[in-house]
């Protein structure tokens, strides 16, 4: 349905998106995962025709959209990372404005506004000004404005940034329902691995402007099939101890996360007993020890040596 071909963008000689290739099939929910600054928003801006690529192409049903994005824009709903609403107007007035610019027929506008408000759960607050809304409610109206013209493809750029867990869950559930019940194709970007895991059939992982891994969740996790993910909680963490852990045979990645150390090591290596030995040698007591099922976070750590929130 929608695909990018070697999509590249450079600003002042610096390449921020480098030959990105991704595709979305109809009805799919695809995640674009990566840390801040990975190039996700720039990729989305190019896909949605807001930004012209330096090279490469964006195709809708095999047809290039770079020179003539009209057809693409008709089927596209874009939810930007920023709250792009008139704060001085009510939720209803904002929806009316966006409905008008998307040329929703006059006879249908009112019912579409009410339906959309129902979807985002703000029907009761429609007359209230946006500036009186909480962050989560603003995010929901931000999404609602992109749904008014019944888009076939919905692109959401980090729609849960800076909101409370309750609103976040509401939004995730709403996107899931749009995808499953209405058949809307979804491209969802986030640096929250758990959101993408929860929502998406397929995932692209981006870092430094490149797609470094892609596939279904199980395909991505299979990257770690020859490795174990171990979480260790010692009574103290010092440089010498960490250096010694990295020296253990079979250890591939070591990452400190708060009071814990996440270790990715080759499967079947004798990591447990070696860790205890290293701890004794450096007078470090192992308080807790856990073998974990690998997650996309671990995959990212494995591929880049960094966590998503670095």
């Amino acid at each position: 349905m929608l695909e990018t071909v070697q999509l590249t963008k450079a600003f002042k000689g610096k390449t921020v998106v480098d030959e990105v290739e991704l595709y979305l099939d109809q009805g799919e929910s695809v995640g674009l995962l990566g840390p801040n600054g990975a190039g996700k928003s720039t990729t989305i801006s190019m896909i949605s025709s807001l930004l012209k690529p330096t090279s490469g192409d964006v195709k809708l049903n095999q047809k290039s959209t770079i020179k003539n994005p009209v057809d693409l824009r008709k089927v596209l709903g874009v939810v930007p990372q920023e709250i792009a609403l008139y704060e001085e107007l009510s939720a209803y007035e904002n929806l009316k404005f966006f409905g008008r610019i998307y040329r929703v027929p006059k006879s249908e506008l009112e019912s579409r506004i009410q339906d959309t408000l129902e979807i985002v759960g703000l029907k009761e607050r429609q007359k209230d000004l946006i500036k009186t809304f909480s962050g989560g409610m603003k995010r929901r109206v931000n999404i609602a404005t992109a749904l008014l013209h019944n888009p076939k493809i919905l692109i959401l750029d980090e729609p849960t940034v800076g909101i409370d867990p309750q609103s976040r869950n509401y939004i995730l559930e709403m996107v899931r329902q749009l995808n499953e019940q209405k058949g809307t194709t979804v491209l969802y970007t986030s640096h929250y691995m758990e959101e993408v895991e929860q929502l998406c059939n397929r995932v692209y992982i981006m870092d430094h402007g490149k797609v470094i891994a892609k596939g279904t969740k199980s395909e991505l996790l299979s990257i770690l099939s020859n490795e174990d993910t171990i979480s260790v909680q010692p009574n103290r963490i010092d440089e010498e101890f960490l250096a010694a852990v990295k020296e253990i045979e079979g250890v591939r990645k070591v990452e400190v996360s708060g009071e814990e150390i996440n270790i990715i090591a080759k499967k079947a290596s004798n990591i447990v007993s070696e860790l205890v030995n290293v701890g004794e040698r450096h007078q470090v007591q192992i308080l807790n020890f856990q073998m974990e099922n690998p997650s996309l976070e671990n995959v990212f750590l494995h591929l880049t040596g960094r966590t998503l929130r670095d």
């Binding site: 807001l50 824009r73 920023e82 792009a84 609403l85 610019i101 998307y102």
Partner: peptide
């Protein structure tokens, strides 16, 4: 970013 949204409209 309201401008961007309007650009994406017809």
């Amino acid at each position: 970013c309201i401008w961007d949204r309007v650009i994406l409209s017809p």
